[in-house]
């Protein structure tokens, strides 16, 4: 029974964190930029949402504030990267580090409990009479569905197409009259807005915000994307791809829940995640190398045979 409950909790967490993974996908795959703002913008979402709620703001409105703050943090990275021409990875790290202090300032301390406050999940539990795990799960699923629909629409529009093309071939986008600084900026803002929204939802669901809640989020996001790709393949229609990422996030959480049940120490979790991502990223490379060597060897054997046969024919 314990494991079932743990898995249900894992699934609902997976869906809420899945929104963060969607945000990581916007930059990592769509824009083809490794944006490390993530850890900071996730905690930013949680912190600002908790701070707003503590000030008495409605929990739903607090989500909107978190989204706006996330977009702003993406804009800072975008500014550093496009206008100041700082390499994207470094620009993201700078924003992320800066956000640590900003988040502490926003909350005024390192941890803000929401236990006494009326979170959106508590409101929904009261309204529906469902258990907390079910409410998180259903709310997360609805958010994911709406967001996937919205993203699918957005990337079909003129601006969305230009953002996708920027990740493919910047040079072409400029030669077709789009400012790639703008498309990159929009992509970074969109990605970090999603990430902050996820942070806000997670903080409301777990009942507190912590300045360290985003540590390692980027790796979890990557793990979700990669698990999705391993399961569903990389050549998917855009909508299916987004869906596969959320599924990847859920599966990641289930793996975590299972290994914790098996007795793994929570302290070792980050190491496990890092190893998981490193392995998942290197497997395709190894396989490709092996395939290449194997096909070379096969061709050597093939030539060898042909030569021999040729020799016979000559004689």
């Amino acid at each position: 029974m314990g494991i079932l409950l743990a898995v249900q909790g894992a699934v609902s967490q997976g869906v809420l964190w899945g929104i963060m993974a969607l945000g990581v996908y916007m930059t990592y795959r769509v824009l083809n930029i490794a944006d490390l703002t993530v850890d900071g913008s996730f905690a930013l979402g949680g912190s600002i949402c908790a701070a707003m709620m503590t000030l008495g703001m409605n929990p739903w409105l607090s989500l909107l504030v978190a989204i706006a703050a996330g977009a702003l943090s993406g804009a800072v990275t975008g500014f550093l990267h496009t206008k100041c021409e700082i390499p994207a990875i470094l620009a993201g790290i700078l924003t992320q580090i800066g956000l640590y202090s900003v988040n502490l300032r926003i909350m005024g301390r390192s941890n803000t409990p929401l236990l006494k406050l009326d979170t959106m999940f508590k409101q929904l539990m009261a309204a529906t009479g469902l258990s907390s795990a079910w409410v998180s799960l259903i709310t997360g699923a609805v958010f994911c569905a709406v967001l996937i629909g919205a993203l699918y629409w957005f990337f079909g529009t003129e601006i969305g197409s230009a953002i996708r093309a920027t990740g493919n071939n910047e040079n072409m986008v400029r030669s077709l009259g789009m400012n790639t600084n703008v498309t990159k900026m929009l992509g970074l803002m969109l990605g970090n807005a999603l990430i902050a929204l996820s942070g806000a939802l997670v903080s409301q669901s777990q009942g507190y915000a912590d300045v360290k809640m985003g540590t390692g989020a980027i790796v979890i996001g990557l793990a979700s994307i990669i698990i999705g790709e391993v399961l569903f393949g990389r050549k998917l229609a855009f909508g299916t791809k987004l869906f596969s990422i959320v599924v990847g996030s859920v599966i990641y959480r289930i793996i975590v829940a299972v290994v914790l049940q098996l007795g793994l120490n929570t302290d070792d979790l980050k190491l496990l995640t890092a190893i998981l991502v490193a392995v998942a990223l290197s497997i395709p490379v190894m396989l490709e190398k092996r395939r290449q060597t194997a096909s070379y060897k096969a061709s050597l054997n093939g030539n060898h045979k042909e030569e021999q046969e040729g020799g016979h024919a000559g004689n």
Binding site: G156, T157, I159, N169, V173, M178
Partner: peptide
């Protein structure tokens, strides 16, 4: 000159919008 991961028609559609403002209408 082209975006490899995008469809032929999507590439053409972007070229067709060269010099025009891009908005939120369908690509």
């Amino acid at each position: 000159g082209t975006a490899a991961d995008m469809e032929i028609q999507e590439n053409l559609a972007m070229a067709y919008r060269r010099g025009k403002n891009r908005g939120l209408s369908w690509g």
